[in-house]
Amino acid sequence: MSKPHISAIVNGDPVEFLADPGMTLLDALRDELSLTGSKEGCGSGDCGACSVIVDGRLVCSCLMLAAEAEGRRVDTIEGLAQGGRLHPLQQKFLEHAALQCGFCTPGLLMAAKALLDANPDPTETEARYWLAGNLCRCTGYDKVIRAVMDAAAELRQVKV
């Protein structure tokens, strides 16, 4: 069988690539598009390190075929900072020391972005449950949650 030709919008830009039918979106992002910010921690949807946003929905890119991305809009960590400026979530992660090794960070940031897009004023419990699919083994989540709550507060200020 020939490799399907995929056209998609990644971080706002049109991209085209060929993908083996069994190739995951994660592998396509990393190997075909050199977007290595999305990480593979498990390959089974249990760690969230590969989190990206597809047509506005948070997904594990390891649990989606690249071929399914045809015509979709995919947002990855590489598109979070805009115009040379960090997104408030990125800035708050730095200020709160919400990362140690940094491997889970891209996935956590994309999940947190999806959270604040859907719910600008989450409670701590809502944030913890929303982010439960993003494993972090370094931080114990404390500073991660503080950073997300602080970023949410800042984003609400900006909107007002």
Binding site: K39, E40, T76, E78, Q90, E95, L99, G102, L109
Partner: peptide, 21 residues
């Protein structure tokens, strides 16, 4: 004090290169 870590921006933007990158 509590300054921002020097490798921070690399790690929040996905630019930092880990083993498989």
């Amino acid at each position: 004090t509590r300054p921002i870590r020097p490798d921070g921006a690399d790690k929040v933007t996905g630019r930092a290169a880990f083993g498989a990158d």
